[in-house]
Design a protein around this nucleic acid. Sequence first.
DNA 1: CCGATCTGAGAAAAGGTTTTCTCAATCCTC
DNA 2: GAGGATTGAGAAAACCTTTTCTCAGATCGG
Lengths: 350, 350
Amino acid sequence: MTDASDRPIQTARKRPVTLRDVAVAAGVSVATASKALNDQGRMTQETRTRVRAIARELGFRPNSLAQSLLRQRSFTVGLLTNDTYGRFSLPVMAGVSEALLDNGVSVFLCNVEDDPRLGQLHVDAMLEKRVDGIIASGKRLDRHLPVDLADLGIPVIYAFTEPDPNSIAFVSDDEGGARLAVEHLIALGRRRIVHVTGPETFAVVHQRAGAYRAVLAEHGLAGARVLTGAWSEAWGHEAVARLFDDDAEEAPDAVFCGNDQIARGVVDGLRERGLRVPEDVGVIGFDNWEIVAAATRPPLTTVDMNLTALGREAGLTLLSLVDGKPVEPGIRKLPCRLVVRQSCGRPPGD
Amino acid sequence: MTDASDRPIQTARKRPVTLRDVAVAAGVSVATASKALNDQGRMTQETRTRVRAIARELGFRPNSLAQSLLRQRSFTVGLLTNDTYGRFSLPVMAGVSEALLDNGVSVFLCNVEDDPRLGQLHVDAMLEKRVDGIIASGKRLDRHLPVDLADLGIPVIYAFTEPDPNSIAFVSDDEGGARLAVEHLIALGRRRIVHVTGPETFAVVHQRAGAYRAVLAEHGLAGARVLTGAWSEAWGHEAVARLFDDDAEEAPDAVFCGNDQIARGVVDGLRERGLRVPEDVGVIGFDNWEIVAAATRPPLTTVDMNLTALGREAGLTLLSLVDGKPVEPGIRKLPCRLVVRQSCGRPPGD
DNA sequence: CCGATCTGAGAAAAGGTTTTCTCAATCCTC
DNA sequence: GAGGATTGAGAAAACCTTTTCTCAGATCGG
């Protein structure tokens, strides 16, 4: 077999066309070419259009490396997260990306797991690449990323993760979300509502449980009951056993769950006991994780934390900061949204 | 209330330390400073260590924009995907990122959905940022991204998505994966194995079904049966009804499912019929989507497509290409891996 | 002690773009 | 027609780093 040197082999990239090439082709100086393309400086309309036509023809793309070097601005930001499976940070990322794309800003995604060494590595890489700012995100509202982002010399925004003191952060309003859920159940006529949620080591567990108790109290309902466990289907399943096995006459008529997986376990557990959802027991989840919420039978009514909107706000705020506009430090809570499906029954008047 | 100008407000980023600053502080020229830091050129050891000490002291970080401009290499690549929820592309991304981080390369993540306009926008942005190369990924092996990546002038690698002709691609070996699954079931003594999978519009459905039939034939087993439907739990559930309602004496003793969600639906359906998994029926999934596979009761035995390894290979190959090394075009199939949990029973001798 | 070699370090160019400054030519006004 | 204003366009500096070239002084061999 001879050397198949005619076979197409991927290699050799062509030299990109520079402003100089355009200038030469148009018979003007690079300065004039630059001004023609940027609508700057003074020249005849003829020159301007000629340069532009040639630039288009040659497929000229300004080298953003050179621009960045000059402008001291890279039009690049870093998104740091420890949420490997993207459960929370991908929606945030979608929002950030959406907000920034329109401004010509690209996003470096860096997953640091929970490894400080990896975190430092990524932060160093971002700093060297001269990102204009950093958005820190995560999988938990009450845990720090394994890196210190203070005094980096560039703006930092926290989105859905534990912020540094005196920084700017966007988080979901978990109390508000819990209120939405419980008030929805009450509006549907449920009276014996229990709360099955995650481990007590999570701050949101307390926030939501507090709101749950407060709403019950506001409506004169006694018998608040909070069961904490894992964030898993198995725990939802087990919680049903605990709730419905002892005294059936006082059994709950609704379960407010700390996430959709627990809710799914609860629904499955109820069905195995011959209890109908939503006729006998209403179930409401949290997170609106489509893949779980929509696959549950019946599909879950749940609370959506609006993570994409949160990411969008974070992105826009970061841009303000990069532009030098002052922004008050503090934690902004963004409202949640109720997504009504079928696991609680139809709302009245619907 | 007076103007609280003493309140800490995020603004004003400090000017980064440049090589010039280091040189001045060390009393040498920038050329010498550069050489000192890069172990180049000739100078006394004393000068070298002094410059380095000062650089460290000042927290000097070379501006990678300037380096990139000079080296014609940005140490940046783009990862293009249309997999919004990251089901497939996040593991790929993890592998890519892992392979590149060690080489000082950062990754722009760009989600283009299925929108050609968005795709073009992202590709243009990447080209302007002078990425060294692009990795195209997706949620489906037999669909193109909504962008044309040919003739971009930079290397492109396809990972878990439909490649252009004559390009370089890494995909999972779905036939091999299916063989693993069916042979596993046969090794466990199952004889009446059916295949419940996704829509016929997917190429992988045919590939896997073909391998399934082939393995049955190789073992002298007749009665191959393929049921196609949606990639959903609901379909798995419904398939069980079709399979187990008609003639119970010839009911299957194993179900090979096209993905973990279908498998989950099958397991649930079987339980509702009083059939035990794995004692009465073995069930095997595909994808090894932890969140589904591990939450199923019993946990699913399933096929893992090794997407992270696939991403790593893609990343390393892209680097070779960027370094100018020639790489043969073609499609590389990477082997799948069987993940044994409990839904098929314990393998003999285990 | 003189020419050749070696050593340490700086000057300058390059990479691509933007912006300010400069300058020659043209136009206007009186 | 002379002086000033205006216009079109180019030269050069700046952004920051790397690398090649140059050069003065020191060292060495004879």
